[in-house]
Design a protein around this nucleic acid. Structure first.
Lengths: 147, 147
DNA sequence: TTTGCTGCAAATAGTTTGCAGAGAC
DNA sequence: GTCTCTGCAAACTATTTGCAGCAAA
């Protein structure tokens, strides 16, 4: 089964477990978040679903994201400029590499992060619960265009 | 000379260089940001200055922060819940450790971050410009109170 | 049939902007 | 004297909420 299908099943399962109904609108939102291709914004999700549900309301997207966040099934990436992006495919904290030109978001593999977390916990005497790590830069594609 | 005094001088110097006037309100904002004790929010800054300037406007705080950001003399820490905190003492990107109970923010020393940046650049083929790293947890003080 | 969900519109909160007068240089 | 800065209020934008009707289970 494809990766995002598994995520859909997991998320839908959690919703049912907790007594939530599976409406077509909710299903459409879950489908997009299970893929989270390019880490969509609320508007991305809303725009995409409006093709199938012209009456789809932004409020519904927001309400479903709040619900999914409460189950830790979607990761919210908020930025200072107010833009929020979402990841329902890998909802646990992980590093992101963000192109400041085209806004593309890539997930790098970084193994040294766990030991860094331990290092920080020891130095500051904090109990670390989660983290947020973003690298901002220019992707090779945008870099090529620049010349 | 004390650390924050140096920062005041540097910031004021940059402002003068660029033809900006040094008003008492601006000076008060710079003084607080030069210390950035506890990484203040816009409201923290505004509340503090209102003691000396009862007519101090929030808009003035915002405008001065925008100005100082444009010179890279203040680091903005935006959070998904909309709260923004500022650091004008160490305006270059650096890791933060944030207590989710009391909102205290601590600066840890982490030397391994530079090599991690290189690792990411190599793996993703991005030109990395800056980064953002936050650890969220509970400080020892709040942990003790919990029991 | 019951209960939660949706769409709409209004409310909210943080931030930005237009304008006229004040003040730094 | 010039030109930027400030305070006020209005504008803006992203998100949340109240409500009545609708639909999943």
């Amino acid at each position: 089964m494809a990766d995002h299908k598994k995520r859909v099943d997991i998320i839908i399962g959690k919703l049912r477990e907790n007594g939530h109904k599976i409406t077509p609108q909710r299903m459409a939102i879950v489908e997009i978040l299970a893929r989270s291709y390019g880490h969509p914004s609320v508007d991305d999700i809303h725009d995409h679903i409006k093709k199938d549900f012209p009456t789809m309301s932004l409020a519904t997207v927001y309400r479903n994201i709040v619900l999914l966040k409460s189950f830790n099934e979607v990761l919210e990436l908020g930025f200072p400029d107010g833009s929020n992006r979402y990841d329902g495919n890998k909802p646990d904290p992980h590093p992101h590499v963000i192109c400041v030109k085209c806004k593309k978001i890539v997930d790098p593999d970084l193994d040294s992060l766990d030991e860094m977390t331990n290092e920080v916990a020891e130095e500051t005497d904090f109990t670390i619960l989660h983290h947020r790590l973003d690298f901002f830069g220019i992707c090779s594609n945008c870099m090529a265009k620049k010349k």
